[in-house]
Design a protein around this nucleic acid. Sequence first.
DNA 1: CTGTATCCGACTGGATACTG
DNA 2: CAGTATCCAGTCGGATACAG
Lengths: 136, 136
Amino acid sequence: MENRHPARPAAPTGPCAAWPAEKGETIRQIVERAGDKWTVLVVSALHAGPLRYTDLQRSVPGISQRMLTHTLRQLRRDGLVTRTAYAEVPPRVEYELTPLGASLIAAVTALIDWAGTHHDEIHAHCARFDDAEPAS
Amino acid sequence: MENRHPARPAAPTGPCAAWPAEKGETIRQIVERAGDKWTVLVVSALHAGPLRYTDLQRSVPGISQRMLTHTLRQLRRDGLVTRTAYAEVPPRVEYELTPLGASLIAAVTALIDWAGTHHDEIHAHCARFDDAEPAS
DNA sequence: CTGTATCCGACTGGATACTG
DNA sequence: CAGTATCCAGTCGGATACAG
């Protein structure tokens, strides 16, 4: 009743105004951000050290320019990465992880660790379920 | 080059066949699953104990039947929750978290904990960025 | 009560082409 | 090299109606 929104009131890709939601919603935002495919991959790639735009593209196979740019901007906006542009003839831009960004890796690692640990279990249950109910 | 897929090769909502990807892709699947808004909320609700379908709907405000059913099925498929149907005149179905599902909470909690800890930092950086570059 | 099926709008994200 | 803009298909997800 109180929610008349036809869709989501806040867009993750939108302006900063998306954040001031309540704590519960904030967590959802964070999880969506941190759980984002490209965010995780880019942050992981940056974990090894600073990288240039094109190097980043090579470090994250399959990412499009659109998504790389988009993800980097979000990451910058949230203070997870820094952008350093060198005003040289061949333009050079380096992206580096901030301590905040580095701290995210620890949390994500827990999830990845869980994934690795229980991957077989999930697959086993999945196969069993699929075998039990093949025709929906 | 080697990827000619016009879109995602594996759908998270699709059949079990989505899993047998390589380790890197598997992690992505897990993160997407675990990072899903409704998955987290439903698992959290179930953490307190077994719940019926309608109780689940009430415990997760804003979820639609479509998404509740959908999420529940995925969770069952992955072996994170169990479904127990009682063949009674008023049909009763209870969903309960498996140990595997309970273990996921620990991993997600790490992420939520990170969110809570650095929420202010992110917000601060966000506001600063927004202030520094208002006109895109 | 416990779902399932369909319609349909909104957002995601890849491909491509073009600018500084 | 670094980034932006547009097009467009696929997917998500809510509302609704209906079935077991």
